[in-house]
Design a binder for these strands. Structure first.
Lengths: 334, 334
DNA sequence: ATGAAAGCGCTAACAA
DNA sequence: TTGTTAGCGCTTTCAT
């Protein structure tokens, strides 16, 4: 390539990287040769030389889920704005695969890792203080010793349940996962309890329903069991929209009208939620802000390779999207 | 690293790559040193030397859609089975970005590219015969000169519409995109027409509804307009489940009972479809088979770098998932 | 069974 | 402004 343009490799490099000290005539000569030979830089060689790949890893349980695919989309967009590309690693929510994803960065496949932790817990946090940048997403690991970007779990859940109460619900079910560890379920459980106590409503532990996984089928089954159990309830707060979608279906299976007899609200505000019948009310966290912050933070850590003086903790804002499932007026968006 | 183990770099390399000619004692010595130093291979250096990255690209319009995230999931799984990783490129369905994705492989970031073509058309097919392997997915480019993996569009659409007819529908709407070019819409349009003619039903061009995009909102709007238009129809075949989900919502907005007055069937069989109210009947193509075939084919092309003697054309099988929206018995899966 | 030499294609540092 | 030198860490080839 350099020969073809009649210059040195260095000059070609300077042209490609837009360095200033190249005469226009030389630049043109190089560009012409590049076009003529259909030249492409060899990224592998550049990576080796620079010790950077320009790619960050995003480890998440499964891309094949409305929530995570949206997260991925936001992260890819944010990374693109910073000139980075994104490699996706699916961990199936297992602790082991999440640790595997870490070592991929150590292999210098990635300059840094965004880890959506589900299998790892707070006790693993120290394993994440490795020699390359890591930013943790999700609710399992917070407060260091690692940078973290998360959601306003407690406040948003409190607002969601508060909304159900405002709409007249008095016996409100919480559909969540295991609440014994610090994670999404326990934090949102805390918000649920807070909202009840705000309103002076009693807690009935039988109304806290735990599901093993956050799938559509789990929500549907849970709702059918709930109705069959004959407990009596007039509101349901689900810790994810996917669960809530399943719950709506399970309630339909059981002949329970929504929002007539039971009101339902979810969390995540998936695109699909606005188009369900009835449309699903939901907590809408600021996904874009989270992704942007996570990528920006990771990039900072990549660029200054000393260990950070202090660990960053970012929590996004949120709004409530009120729709038919809690008696809101709206059908589908027009 | 080599020094630490008291051997040459070559021996370390042989151990890492599992070459046979290493004495057990030597191997142990190396493994011990690797563990002690927490050694990781430098993938960039390996890539440079080998001229391969072990990563394939997957270019698709947007990861943030139930259909494409599922495709990605299947492809990542299939690639994993073949020891490859996957880089995802979002093209926003534009022709330009799809061509960009091509040059990323030329940069040797990827060993080959799986291109889910939406912006490119048949006339661009020749631009895809480049010096690195490409397999095209989707319905825009078929029959070479490039390898292609696709769906049984005509037969599956014919079966879907045939099913509506069996269930008593006589005036069946088709919701699709532009049918003037060869693509998903035109192929499924052909299947629709075939099913009508199979049954001796007349075609009414007013029942063919074109939408600009395949989003939830497009389906919903289309359904509302359809009802408002007062045409009279008793069945709807949508070319994607996302459109169908929107249509169900639009019909609900218009007070039209499904399946009572109108029956609806979609295409793709998304996970969500089984949990809608009513649950959505759909064509279920074999996504896993497509992904597996596409990755296997790409790998073949990567390994034998001569241009292929002939271009491969793979079409997956399909089944129909019959649910409530066409009068099927099932509610949500139990 | 192990090692030495060479070089993949690029760019940082320095020299001209 | 341009070129020279060197080396990133690995693996292919060939020698021992």
């Amino acid at each position: 390539m350099a020969n073809a343009a009649g210059v040195s490799a260095m000059t070609v490099s300077n042209v490609i990287n837009g360095h200033p000290n190249v005469r226009q005539a030389t630049r043109d000569k190089v560009l012409e040769a590049m076009a003529r030979l259909d030249y492409r830089v060899n990224v592998a060689a550049r990576n080796l030389r620079k010790g950077r790949t320009g790619t960050i890893g995003l480890a998440l349980p499964q891309i094949d889920s409305p929530y995570y695919s949206r997260l991925a989309s936001c992260v890819i967009a944010a990374a693109g704005r910073h000139g980075l590309r994104v490699g996706i690693e699916q961990t199936a929510a297992t602790r082991e695969s999440e640790l595997d994803a870490l070592s991929l960065s150590r292999n210098r496949l990635y300059d840094g890792l965004l880890l959506s932790a589900v299998g790892l817990g707070q006790t693993d946090a120290e394993r994440l203080t490795v020699d390359h940048p890591v930013v943790v997403l999700g609710d399992r690991i917070t407060g260091g010793p690692v940078d973290h970007v998360g959601m306003p779990n407690l406040e948003a859940s409190r607002a969601a349940v508060g909304h159900l109460i405002e709409r007249g619900c008095r016996r409100i079910v919480l559909v969540c996962g295991d609440v014994d560890e610090v994670d999404t379920s326990s934090l949102r459980h805390a918000g649920y309890r807070r909202a009840l106590s705000d309103a002076g409503l009693p807690e009935d532990p039988r109304l806290v329903r735990r599901v093993a996984r956050f799938g559509l089928e789990d929500g549907a089954r849970c709702a059918r069991e709930l109705v069959a159990g004959g407990l009596g309830f007039d509101g349901v707060f689900c810790v994810t929209d996917t669960l809530a979608t399943g719950v709506l279906r399970g309630l339909a299976d059981s002949g329970v009208p929504v929002p007539g007899r039971v009101k339902v609200i979810g969390f995540d505000n998936l695109a699909e939620s606005a188009y369900l019948v009835p449309s699903l009310s939901s907590v809408d966290p600021d996904h874009d802000a989270m992704a942007e912050r996570a990528v920006a933070l990771l990039l900072t850590r990549i660029e200054q390779h000393e260990p950070p003086p202090r660990y960053e903790e970012f929590v996004s804002g949120f709004t409530l999207a009120i729709r038919e499932s809690t008696g809101g007026p709206q059908g589908a968006p027009r």
